[in-house]
C-alpha cells in the first residue's frame, strides 16, 4: 500500500520530465505526446537559433562572474559568522539569508526600481548584481555549514607554530573547507543559471538570459525546441547535483 503510494508520488514528480524528454525527439513541428517518430532535429535547432546561443553565453558569464563576486563577499561573511560570537550576529545571519526568504518577484522588482530606474545602471551590471544577491545566501549557508565541522583550535595551533592569521586562513582553513566551497559554487551556479524571477526584471533590450529567452520563445512558437533545451538543462543539473552529493552529501540542505 505504502509502496503504491510512493510509486504514485514518483510518477507525479517524474512523469512530466519523462514526457518532456520523450517529446523532445518529436520530428513534427508541434509538441505532442506520444511523438510520431524519432528525430534529433530540434536539438540541432537549438544551435541554429542564435538567440539561444547568445543568451546561453550571457547566462554562463553572469553566473560565473556573479559566483566570483558572491564568493568574495560570502567566504569572509561565512567565516566571521562561524568563527566569532559577536553582538548582532543573529541579525546579520538573517540579513544574509533574507534573499531566500523574500519572494523573487519582490526582490526583482526592487532591484529594477533602484538599480536601473534610480541609479540608471547598465543592464548587464544590474543583472550581475541581481544574480550576486541571489547567490550570496547559498554561498554563505553552505560554507558556514562546512565551517561548523571545523575545529577553530586548529587555527590557533597553526598560529602557535608560527603562522600568521592570513597564512593560516589560506593554508589551514581553506583546504579544510574546499569541498564545501566547491559545493557552494555549484549550488549557487544552479540557482543563478535557472533563475527566472530576478532575470525577468533585470534583462532588457539586447541582453537576456537563457531561461528568459526560453520563456519568450514559448510565447511565440510551440515546437519541440524548448523540450530539447529542457532535456539538456536537466542533464546538466543532474550532473552538477551528482557532483555536489559526492562532495558534501545532501545533509546540509536539511541542517539548521
Amino acid at each position: 500500500m505504502l509502496s503504491l503510494y510512493t510509486l504514485l508520488v514518483f510518477i507525479f514528480l517524474l512523469g512530466p520530465l519523462v514526457i518532456i524528454s520523450i517529446t523532445s525527439f518529436e520530428p513534427g513541428t508541434v509538441l505532442k505526446f506520444p511523438p510520431e517518430g524519432f528525430s534529433l532535429k530540434w536539438y540541432k535547432n537549438i544551435f541554429e537559433v542564435s538567440a539561444f546561443m547568445e543568451t546561453f553565453r550571457t547566462s554562463i558569464v553572469i553566473s560565473l562572474l556573479g559566483n566570483l563576486l558572491a564568493l568574495l563577499l560570502g567566504v569572509p561573511a561565512a567565516y566571521a559568522l562561524s568563527r566569532y560570537r559577536f553582538h548582532g550576529r543573529d541579525t546579520l545571519n538573517a540579513v544574509f539569508l533574507s534573499p531566500v526568504l523574500i519572494p523573487g518577484i519582490v526582490l526583482g522588482f526592487t532591484l529594477l526600481r533602484y538599480l536601473i530606474v534610480v541609479y540608471n545602471l547598465p543592464i548587464v551590471a544590474g543583472l550581475l548584481i541581481g544574480h550576486t544577491v541571489i547567490m550570496l545566501p547559498f554561498i554563505i549557508r553552505v560554507i558556514a555549514s562546512s565551517l561548523e565541522n571545523f575545529d577553530f583550535a586548529v587555527e590557533e595551533a597553526a598560529q602557535s607554530l608560527g603562522a600568521t592569521r592570513v597564512y593560516t586562513f589560506f593554508k589551514v582553513v581553506l583546504p579544510n573547507i574546499r569541498s564545501g566551497i566547491l559545493a557552494a559554487i555549484l549550488i549557487a551556479f544552479l540557482e543563478s543559471f535557472n533563475n527566472v524571477d530576478i532575470s525577468v526584471f533585470m534583462t532588457g533590450p539586447g541582453i537576456s538570459t537563457l531561461p528568459i529567452q526560453m520563456l519568450t520563445y514559448v510565447q511565440n512558437y510551440f515546437d519541440p525546441t524548448i523540450a530539447a533545451i529542457s532535456v539538456i538543462l536537466m542533464v546538466l543539473t543532474a550532473a552538477l547535483m551528482f557532483i555536489i552529493e559526492r562532495l558534501m552529501g545532501f545533509a546540509y540542505f536539511t541542517k539548521r
Partner: peptide
C-alpha cells in the same frame, strides 16, 4: 602568538 615560539597542546588535539 606566532612570534612567541611556545608549543601548545590542545584538548581537542587540533591536528591539521
Amino acid at each position: 602568538v606566532e612570534k612567541r615560539n611556545f608549543g601548545f597542546v590542545f584538548q581537542s588535539y587540533a591536528l591539521f
